[in-house]
Design a binder for these strands. Structure first.
Lengths: 225, 225
DNA sequence: TGAAAGCATCGTACGTTGTACGTACGATTC
DNA sequence: GAATCGTACGTACAACGTACGATGCTTTCA
């Protein structure tokens, strides 16, 4: 019943339980069985350790969740400064963010819900602002842009893993949708199966990109303060 | 300690506990004290009812959460068919979605995490697809567009209520950020305080709109299948 | 080489959660 | 008036987070 991510078996040597091992095992556990399955007992069992031993490396479960956020942020690839144009690097970071989110879909709610507190969690943001500065954006517009991109990417992945419009999937009878007074959804339903989800993501990302380019071209902030 | 949303006091007549009352009270409770505070005992206490009485109207807690999603979707304003142009109505729905999300920020994770199963929850989607059809989008592009908008709006509100970059807020010392090797964030920090969040939302929304318009003008699907 | 100290590990226990179960009570029907 | 039924309620149990104290293993100094 283990998820396969075990630490080295106890072989006479002292068991090297540490924060990093705990966090990566927690991520693996959530990946395999969902956020609801993450509890201190199960995590300890996965590590072959007593429950309370965890508390010597993590003050409480909230800190454990924040640690997961940290781990995910560290997985985001930050492109070299010299590699390609700014928009190419921006796209690379967006895709990397999505790749991490897709690799750990069950963890994504944590990414959106919990604040980025540690320096490790903030590093990708730092890199993003660097790219946006190169793009010629001032602080205010950089903030709006980054938030828009991150909101799109994380929102997309969450809807993706939750099953976007799954209530309209091929399992549902189109005629039933008609009877419910949802004619457009009845049409949409047949197009929801067999989607190329990567293409859909890129299409939406491109849509946001187009907006940004159009925004940059206009030079003016479109609305409000 | 009640949130003020009580049902009619028992006055000799049998207590009229029903699903709708339970759901709206649950929403009020989550609004007031957060998702973590929503448990069957607290909800029953709020209603002046025994805990297990709830289970006669809601099969279990998961169904209760799905019911909350239903209530929120019913709060989304669906503009009349004859009122204004399609893009005006699209903007209205996006703002209404955000208004609902902002009125119940603690509930938003449910909106993103749980599938829309019931007809009531699907009705705003139906209206959205109607608008997008008027905009001249075929099913595939309509799906991409709706998902992009919803991902942006819900992602934005979640980050908003979780405190976007709250780890960089005015509470954090800018010099500390410099020492951590986060110079851009140190600059950004001063711009994070006193933001006009409504203007920020509209700016991001406008950014996505610009992309959609640009997309429509080009007529071709930008990427992939 | 021995003892002392310090920390990581673990077993136990308490309060809170979701909810299964059995029971009591009012309304409705014959 | 009696049988039926749906709803409300009290109790009870398993699983959760975690506070507490005792038990080791490792290291350090004499």
């Amino acid at each position: 019943m283990t998820t396969g991510v075990a630490r080295p078996e106890r072989a006479g040597a002292p068991t090297p339980l540490d924060r990093a091992t705990i966090l990566s095992t927690a991520v693996a556990l959530v990946d395999a069985h969902g956020l609801a399955a993450l509890n201190m007992r199960a995590l300890a069992r996965e590590l072959g350790v007593g429950t309370m031993s965890l508390y010597h490396h993590v003050p409480n479960k909230d800190a454990l969740l924040d640690g997961i956020v940290e781990v995910l942020n560290e997985e985001i690839e930050i492109p070299d400064l010299e590699s390609g144009s700014w928009d190419e690097r921006a796209r690379r970071m967006a895709r990397s963010l999505r790749a991490v989110a897709l690799a750990h879909p069950n963890c994504v709610p944590l990414l959106v819900t919990r604040p980025f507190s540690t320096a490790a969690a903030l590093r990708p943001c730092e890199a993003a602002f660097q790219v946006l500065e190169e793009a010629g954006l001032g602080p205010d517009r950089a903030i709006v842009t980054l938030r828009t991109f991150v909101a799109y990417v994380l929102g997309f992945v969450m809807m993706e893993s939750a099953g976007f419009l799954s209530g309209v999937g091929p399992d549902r009878d189109p005629e039933e949708l008609l009877e419910l007074g949802l004619p457009h959804l009845a049409v949409i339903a047949s197009h929801l199966a067999d989607r190329d989800i990567n293409a859909d993501f890129d299409a939406g990302l491109h849509l946001v990109e187009l907006g940004l380019l159009s925004w940059l071209a206009s030079g003016a902030r479109p609305a409000g303060g």
